[in-house]
Design a binder for these strands. Structure first.
Lengths: 316, 316
DNA sequence: GGAAAACTTGCTCACATGAGCACACGCATC
DNA sequence: GATGCGTGTGCTCATGTGAGCAAGTTTTCC
């Protein structure tokens, strides 16, 4: 059975929030003093009966952001609202836009910004306003010459971000994954590539996304891996990839041999970075997001509400 | 592209509603005067970006209630929240409970209350508190001797309501629908039945529900009609039944011959009643609810949010 | 049965907030 | 370049609201 005070607090809340009456007027209607009404309203709020939601594509969830900062090693977090959103694409767009906003407001402005590539990063680039910064050197931190269609997407992302920042782009002229370790070592020692990798290692900030470990991964899409290879990685515990490298739930490399053939910044370097912004959204990426956050691969997480709750280990 | 002020109002709303900051503090953060912040918040509210919802099984939607009173001929309306409810059963329970509350608060207390029977009415009876009134004569207004199982439900409902009101129940000792008009006329003229019908016609208030026109109808369930007969009625335009009589979208009797064999109060009597409370909830009953409201068959509607919006002709 | 504890109630006071107003700025027109 | 109009801004003032407090009431426990 429901408490009398509980029912009264609901009646009061209806009059207060729906009818915009003052607590005094409510008191007159319900035959209570205005202080009692105030207490009932406070009680209704405390019991969670009053739900206030900001419904807007650009709305953030500050409460969840704070919880993330407090309960994880993150130094900052941006959580976009998932209210009224049904598709993962929409969530990713919102997160990408939020990442663009975060980057724009980031102080100090990074002189060198290391970035990965992919659908999400492309959207971040689109979301940035021309002139968002003045003179940023954008460096690719993982191999990105696509093997089939989508050619140039990786490069275009870096160039767009750099142009809009009135700065320069430094591209990594290399595939993401090589077939032989020897080839990888050869490419890596090439002066043109080595210079970019060194520059990337010394970036003042990083911005990257992550991919889920399944056949829809960008690495499969780009032809670097087959769906079967990814399935095998999943069998070994892979939850997703970050800058081209597959990790398990603990944030460790899943397949050392594969990793030896992957070109790009090493995870240890990312872990040492003072500012590493991960943009990860969508229901398929909950596991990777969790792995990345708890293994210290990023200092800032830009994500959606549901993913954030998953990272915190709570039901949505 | 999104307006700068719009974005600012969202940021302000986040700080105000999620972080519980004062408008002054928000002003300090966003570098605005506190009046500007107040205006942005007002704007956010006006634009509908702020959604305040009362989540509680007993919560009502006063705004929708008012719209119902204004845009229909209803003298009063009770609309229960559908927040977080998935099943029609739950909606019906909530509406039934709300009807019980409404009846309890109804002034003047009806000396004679005419009621129909069915699942919903049974729940209303359950929801009433013992002693909700002092001395109400409860009269059945339509035939209700069940042909198979559920025997006694109709009678039990009337008796329960009467007992809890410290009053008396007057049962209508007759089936709902007869097979022959002659039988119906004979029963109707029987002194025991006629007296009850007269009493029912003179009731000071009515409380009834309505059934949808499909094979799950209570009349089919009780064996008065077959699923095929109901299908035929639907073909003729039936949207549902009220006190055992099937009506179309205009509130008119669908099948006059069938109606002649139905025992109970006539719809004209209901339309003349100063207080006729209809309790109708659930997604299957939108059409009947609409028909009943717009043909003046009730003066008070107790329903759920979605049905109310359907009655108002709006999307949910 | 009575004392102590826990809670509730009505209140004062200080702060937060919305309404209303005057002024300044941008814009078009003459 | 002056004039009038509409919009946006900062302010005063009145009202609404939450924190804290003392008295009253109920509950609990000996």
């Amino acid at each position: 059975m429901i408490d009398t005070d509980e029912l009264l607090s609901i009646r009061a809340a209806e009059l207060y929030y729906e009818e915009n009456k003052t607590q005094d007027e409510i008191g007159a209607v319900l035959r209570l003093t205005r202080w009692k009404v105030g207490r009932l309203l406070a009680q209704a709020k405390a019991s969670g009966f009053i739900r206030i939601e900001i419904v807007h594509p650009r709305a953030r969830r500050l409460i969840v952001e704070r919880r993330l900062r407090e309960h994880t090693g993150l130094s900052d977090a941006v959580v976009v609202s998932a209210a009224g959103v049904s598709t993962d694409e929409e969530l990713q767009s919102r997160a990408a836009q939020a990442a663009a906003d975060y980057l724009t407001a980031l102080r100090p402005v990074p002189s060198t910004l290391g970035i990965s590539w992919g659908r999400t990063l492309h959207e971040v680039a689109q979301g940035l306003k021309p002139g968002w910064a003045r003179g940023v050197n954008v460096v690719q931190i993982n191999g990105g010459v696509s093997l089939n269609r989508r050619t140039g997407t990786a490069a275009a992302t870096a160039v767009t971000i750099a142009q809009k920042a009135l700065g320069s782009a430094t591209l990594l002229p290399s595939p993401a994954i090589l077939e032989l370790v020897e080839t990888k070592l050869a490419i890596e020692s090439d002066r043109a590539v080595a210079t970019v990798l060194d520059l990337g290692s010394a970036a003042s900030a990083y911005l990257f996304s992550a991919g889920q470990a399944d056949e829809n991964s960008a690495l499969v899409d780009s032809g670097y891996l087959t769906a079967d290879q990814v399935a095998e990685l999943v069998r070994k515990g892979a939850v997703g990839d970050i800058v081209g490298r597959y990790i398990n739930a603990d944030g460790h490399i899943v397949d050392l041999e594969l990793d030896e053939r992957t070109i790009g910044i090493r995870l240890e370097q990312l872990r040492r970075a003072p500012t590493a912004i991960a943009v990860i959204a969508g229901s398929t990426k909950h596991a990777v997001a969790r792995a990345i956050v708890f293994s210290g691969l990023c200092t800032v997480l830009v994500t959606d509400e549901d993913t954030a709750l998953a990272v915190l280990g709570e039901a949505p």
